[in-house]
Design a protein around this nucleic acid. Structure first.
Lengths: 198, 198
DNA sequence: AATATAAATGAATGTTCGTTCTTTTATACA
DNA sequence: TGTATAAAAGAACGAACATTCATTTATATT
């Protein structure tokens, strides 16, 4: 018997991501995707049950990549300053290296597919992050806060900076471009730490 | 001659918003929209040039409502603490009162329609916000920062809190619901102020 | 080398899409 | 009250959609 060609699957996934990010979910047509990936439409249905399954699988894979890179060199028992810095650097690196992936995940977040994803969500990540915050509170390195408040103050600014960087155009009027470099990251991180320390 | 029926236009807009938020841009079918709004498909094309024009007009109107509510009782010459609090309260109120509108605007932000919108963007709002920040820096009420860093620290946490509130499910595991009340708003705002004050 | 099996295909399915056409209906103004 | 005019309607258009079907092709195993 013939075996599956993992290159075909990869081509399909890669082109699908590209199409969704460039043209929205509207723009993901199975026939156009087939053409872009160099396969027959029917071939897509060998690897994916249907259009929705393709999207969910895409999301799952991108999410897992993101998680594993984010947790690199991280340990929830780390001192708070150090752990938060590792998190910031890992996340920033992931998003800067994978702009298409980030765009896709943001797109999913406000689409009807969001409902499909929350069931499949990997719990380890959220648990690890919670553990980290609780440790920090216990060690008096972090003010006592609802987890959502902590998360909002600790990470939302980073995500916003990355989005400014990606969009090219920050808040300046003209041609001036906002570039998220290490200096600005450290500057912002120190503000966030100032807010969160007891 | 017959005059335009503003109620028809309103019905079309309202149902279109609802469809987009519930089913995504995919889900906005002109024929289904016509049925939902109780008009003929052809009638939509009296008020809107085409599907894209409808979406852009929707966005423009929602954006203008949002701007005007956000700037209520606000003056860029205000003391920093006070001005930031007014901004937080206005924005939070707008988003809590108009969840569909917020969802729609977030959806646009990561869609191909984003390109259509940036040209039509009202500059007054961004200018006013910039003026506010510069005043605060001049009066030594705010650390000297790139505008994007300020924006990320000052507002991104609020947006994230609102999103937790809307999604119903914060970071807790089970049935426990995160509710963004005034106490939590004030608590978070004071953290942000701590970060931003010189 | 023969065979069994699943991958891979291109054409075809019926459906739904955005938009327009022709006709009818309502109303501002003469 | 009659007339001009634009709103409103419903049916109709070809195009594009997701998916499947019948057939061919490649390959792991015998």
């Amino acid at each position: 018997m013939r075996t599956r060609d993992e290159n075909k699957r990869m081509a399909i996934c890669q082109k699908a991501l590209k199409m969704i990010v460039e043209k929205g979910f509207d723009g993901l047509s199975m026939q156009k995707l087939a053409k872009a990936a160099g396969v027959s439409p029917a071939t897509i249905y060998i690897y994916f049950k249907d259009r929705d399954d393709l999207i969910v699988q895409l999301w799952t894979e991108e999410m897992e990549k993101m998680f594993s890179i984010t947790l690199k060199d991280f340990d929830p028992a780390m001192p708070f300053d150090e752990g938060l810095k590792v998190q910031w650097m890992n996340r920033a690196k992931y998003f800067m290296d994978n702009p298409v992936s980030m765009h896709f995940m943001e797109q999913i977040k406000y689409s009807p597919y969001h409902h499909l994803t929350i069931k499949h969500l990997n719990n380890t990540f959220v648990t690890t992050m919670g553990e980290f915050a609780h440790n920090a509170i216990r060690n008096k390195e972090l003010v006592r806060l609802p987890l959502e408040v902590y998360w909002s103050v600790a990470f939302a600014p980073l995500y916003q900076l990355v989005k400014f960087h990606m969009s090219g155009r920050g808040l300046r009027g003209g041609a001036e471009k906002f570039v998220l470099d290490e200096k600005i990251m450290n500057q912002t991180l120190s503000l966030v730490l100032k807010a969160l320390k007891p």
